[in-house]
Structures are given as C-alpha cells and as structure tokens.
Design a protein around this nucleic acid. Structure first.
Lengths: 355, 355
DNA sequence: CTGAAAGCGCTAACAA
DNA sequence: TTGTTAGCGCTTTCAG
C-alpha cells in the first residue's frame, strides 16, 4: 500500500518545495528498514556501523528532518517547554530583566533541541488558559516567571505532576524547585555600604511585597540597619511596587516625612532612577546630600546622572540554571526539587560616594 | 482491538493524573462515533444538536483536551508560529521595545489558539539552526524581528514558501510582508520641532544603518533640515548604533566637532538619555543650551532629567498587526504580501522646550 | 544487529 | 447527519 512515493503525493500541503522526506524514504534509499533508520536518527547503539553510515548518507541526501508531531505522538513528549510570564504588562515594559532571563533560558536549551513556548498571562483569565494548556501536557514542563504571593498556580501544577521551575523564591508553598539570587544579602550589602559612607537617615523604596524578591530586599535593608545598631523606622520605608511612577511618588512622600534623609536604597534601578529624578527636582545633590543605591544593574544605571551604584545579579546564568533544572526534572520525574540561589554583588558608582 | 480502556493503560507516561482521555473515550461516553466526536470538537456544522450536546457533556466530564501532536500529524499544521529575534543580546537588554512587541504579538494570537514559539538567534550559527527549524515546517509561519540589511534569511524563507511577516521594512528584497512605523515622518516631526524652537545647529545620533528604521530616521532628520532651508552637514551626524555606550561616545565627538550645537535628535530614547548624560557632564544646560528629542517613548524618557521629548510608535498595536497578517497568510497562502505602516506621534516634554 | 508489525490520537474521505 | 475506514510519520516491542 505504499508503492511509489517520495516527497510527493496528491495534495500534500501548502509547502511545495520543503523537505518532506520520511523515515520511510530514508530507509528505502539506505536499503534498510524503517526501524533501523529510526534507530540511527535516535542514536541507538544497536546499529551496525555500515547501516549507520548508509542511513546518515540518505538523511543528508534527502535533507530529512524528523516530523515532530509524529515523534511526539509516539514518545509522548512534546520536546518543548513553556515559559510563563505571570507579570502584568507594566513590568515587562520597563524592565530589561525579562529579556535577559529569556536569553539565559534559551541558552540553557541550546544543546537539547527543546523549544521554548512563550506564554503570557496578564490576568486571571489568561492565567486559567495557560494553566489548561500546561495541564493538557502540550509542553513537557514549564518555567514560571513572577508568580505573586497569593497565586496557587505553581502548587496546583506541581500537584498534577507538571514539572516546573520557578523564577524567584515562592512565598507560599515549599517543596518547589526555584532559582533565585541572594536578594537579601545584596540589599544588606547595599545598605551597609550607605552606612559605611556615614549616612544616618537611610530610607528605602521597596517592591511589591507579595514578591519574594521584594520582601527579601526589604529584609536585607533592615538587616543592615540593625547590624549597624540603627533603630528601624517604618516611616523610612515606602512602596514603589517596581513601578517608576509609584517610586517617584514614594520618594516625594519620604522627602516630605524626612527632609533630612541622606541615604536611599531602592529595590530596583528603574525605581532608583525615578527617585533620583525627584531628589534632583527637590534640589538635593547626589551623592553629596543623598546617597543612592539601586538594584539589578540594568543599563539605566549607567545612563542616569549621576551613574547609579547598584546590586548586580547574574540574570542570564540564572535563566540557564532554570533550564538545566527543568530539563533534569523532565528526564527524571523522581528527581527531588532543588533550590538554587545565586550570589549578588555590589557595584559602586557615582550616586553613593562623594569623590 | 481496543476493548477496555479509558484514561489508563499499562505504562502510559510520567503524568499520573492528567487528562488523557481521547476522542475515542469521548465518543464512547457520548454514544457516538469517533468521527462525530471529532466533528464536534472542530465545530463542524454537520452535527445534530443532540449529538453535539452529548459530546459536549462527555468532553466536560472527561476533561478531554485534544492531543495536539495527533492533530498536527493529520492536519499538517502545528498551530504554532515562530517569533524569531535576530538581534544580538545587547539590544534586547536595554530596549523595552521587544517586550512590548512580544506582548502585542501574543495579544494578536489570543483568540486563535495558536502558540508562540520563541526563537533567538544571536549569531550566524544559531540563525542557521533557526532556519532549519522553520524550514522543517515545525511552525506554520514566522515573525522575523530585526533582520539586518545583509541578511538573506527572509528572502530564502519566502522563496521556500514559509509564511513570514517582518518587523520593520527590510532593506533588501521587496515583496515581503512587513509592519513598520512611519519612522521617517516621526524623525521629521522631531527635527522640525527643534527647528521651530529656533535651533540652528542640530546634530543627530543615528542607529545601525543596515536597519530600515535607522536609515528612515536619518532620512527624516535630513528632510526636516532641508525643509527648513538648512544646509546638511555630515559632521553633524554620528553613529550610536542603538547602543547607549556608543551613543555617549558619539555625543562626545559631536560636541568636540561642534561646541556650539544647540539641538540633538537621537534615534532612540536610550541613546538620547546617554547623550543627555554626556551633555550634562560637559556643562550644557538642557534644554536651554541644547534641546534634545529621542525616539520610542520608552519609560526611560520619563525617568531621565530633564524628561525627554520623543517620538511615540504604537509598538503593541504593531505586534498585534503582525500576528494578524501572519495568521491571514497562513490561512490563505495565496494572499498577497502586505505592508502596514503605523503613524508616529511627537511627544513634547522638558528636554526640548524652554519654559 | 535487523525487520515486521502494531499502533500513538486524530481527521478526512467515502459510504450509508 | 452519521459511521467506517484509512492512514499521517514515527518509535518500539517482539521475533528472528
């Protein structure tokens, strides 16, 4: 029932030229059976060198590429993973963080021929859609970026045995795999640096507190002050929620409450930059009157004047690690969840030291 | 040969719980044939209301979700499109442009159950890999972001009948579908605005000239000067290649060549921001001494002091349109290529007008 | 080491 | 309108 056919049938598809050779074609040309051809394609060791060579040549000649759908149907693997962005649009816009992370994730996939399916969920409705998609097993696993405190999605997926890795420590459930940077220590270093510079009234603009990173950075801020024997003052803390606009407003409030403040730690560079704008507008000199440290070491830190001292996290490496963990977990579902925390590093520029 | 089986066989897969009902299961439960069940799933009109209801109930009860691989195998459609980022890492990092664009593209796919496969190619080797992937027909079509002047990838793919849509006017071949903004007119408006403000010596920092956008913005700059009867001066043009660092260097060169320059048009906000830094460092007041206009209206425009006048392009809408065009082309390969150009808009802030 | 055969889950002729 | 049947291209027992 097969007979004459190679790369052509009656009304095959819209693609006229494209490589549509099948294993069948390859096998015939190589003078072996489908099974053997398939074995060669999948690097099975149980193939004689001669057969292997013949098949390889046939593959080359026909420009054969396996049909992923057919393979998936058989292997029950999609050879793709989902990267789910749970963050609302606003953050994605301003923050180069996500681009960096995607790059790292992609790099981590590079020698595995697993594809990256991008799934964005701006609201609960879209999130439900994404959940259904993941649940249906259309991807072999997923990396979840930015789940907030009250979001049960990770837990639900984990319970249904969907392999997942989170970006950032989840506030809720334990037992999940995640990759994070040492936000707390990064913040501690930043604020200790301000203390060491002789600053006495150090404020902070923190991120959305239902995010682990935001909470950890705030804790680090408090750690440093406590270490230095300062008394914590809640009125020196204001929410900027990782938004430049809200950070600007927060800065105004802080300045109003503490006209004498002489140090500021902002939980992101974009918030720091916005705060710097407000400080300059208010006639403060930076760093003479107010020393400022941000977080992330994004390009804006170098663009703004004065250039921004900040805390660097190895975003790309983190993305790569997330891929690595997920692939491992997909390969071996019994693999225990792992948590990986990357070190952060203080980068001192103009905004925090009087030269 | 089927017999007893519903959602369970011997060693099915790693997923223990998940919804693994098949059309077969649905059909049996609904008391109809596989074909009818399939018809209901695919909204075929040739189904009686009763059958439809029964099948719908069964689907609901079993939590049935079609297996994409099996469907693809049959329909020869992957129900996914590739979004190829040809840009080197550096741009992705700083520029919120890509995040915006992805968001738009994704939104354009929202009610089509087509998935977005992200493919990044940082160099020629990776580009070859991506090309092979697209060529193999693993996706139904692709959106190409950032192909540079000498890149033959779009042409090659088009020749092989892979449906594609480009982001930005390609410099090379005609006859390709693309979505762009009116860069030239945007730039012209920006520079005319500087002229109207009485600026006499207006410089520009342009992007990588093997990019249509960069060339168009440079042309728009020249248009405006010519319109105003100014004499073009090549020494007032410097390359920033969309990189803040190179833009800073370009600004230094320009300042050196023309200490009296009183206007600047930068082809991106990030370059404008970097240039502003250099100008401030050089003791120039903005806008009193030098008026500055950027391009893109990214968040940095609001963050920097003074806030940046800029040209806004509807990035998200552009992304949505790209999806729309691609889906249309996939549906009907005979559909002629279309070019869509979105209007740009001048946004005036502090950096260009003395208040 | 190799081949024959079975069948993954689905859709699409073709009949009825 | 519905059911029957034939595969899509691939991997994988199971014999040989």
């Amino acid at each position: 029932m097969i007979g004459e056919r190679i790369s052509d049938k009656t009304g095959r598809s819209r693609r006229d030229a494209g490589p549509t050779a099948t294993v069948e074609d390859v096998a015939r040309l190589a003078g072996v059976s489908r099974a053997t051809a398939s074995r060669v394609v999948n690097d099975s060791p149980r193939v004689s060198p001669e057969a292997r060579d013949a098949v390889r040549r046939a593959i080359e000649e026909l420009g054969y590429v396996p049909n992923r759908a057919a393979r998936s149907l058989m292997t029950r693997r999609s050879d793709s993973i989902g990267v789910v962005i749970l963050e609302p649009a606003t953050r994605l816009f301003g923050d180069p963080f996500f681009g960096h992370l995607l790059l790292g994730i992609n790099a981590g996939l590079a020698d595995s021929d697993v594809q990256l399916v991008l799934l964005m969920a701006q609201d609960r409705r879209e999130e439900a859609r994404v959940e259904k998609y993941l649940d249906a097993g259309h991807v072999d696993g997923a990396i979840l970026v930015g789940p907030h405190g009250d979001d049960q999605l990770p837990t639900r997926l984990a319970r249904r045995r969907v392999p997942i890795v989170l970006s950032g420590r989840p506030l809720g459930g334990g037992g999940l795999s995640y990759v994070d940077s040492d936000n707390r220590n990064g913040a501690r270093m930043a604020v200790s640096h301000l203390v060491a510079g002789g600053r006495r009234s150090i404020a902070t603009i923190h991120g959305t507190l239902d995010l682990g990173s935001a909470r950890d950075r705030l804790d680090g801020y408090r750690d440093a002050l406590t270490d230095a024997g300062y008394v914590l003052d809640a009125t020196l803390e204001a929410a900027g929620n990782y938004s430049p606009a809200m950070a600007a407003e927060a800065m105004r409030v802080l300045l109003d409450r503490h006209p004498d403040l002489d140090g500021l730690f902002a939980a992101s560079d974009s918030m720091a930059a916005a705060a710097v704008g407000v400080l300059l507008d208010a006639g403060r000199r930076i760093p003479e009157d107010v020393a400022v440290v941000g977080f992330d070491d994004t390009p804006v830190a170098m663009t703004v004047r004065p250039t921004l001292s900040t805390v660097r996290q190895p975003i790309e490496a983190m993305g790569r690690e997330m891929s690595r963990l997920l692939l491992r977990r997909i390969d071996d579902p019994a693999d225990a969840p792992s948590q990986v925390v990357f070190a952060t590093e203080l980068v001192v520029r103009e905004s925090s030291v009087v030269s």
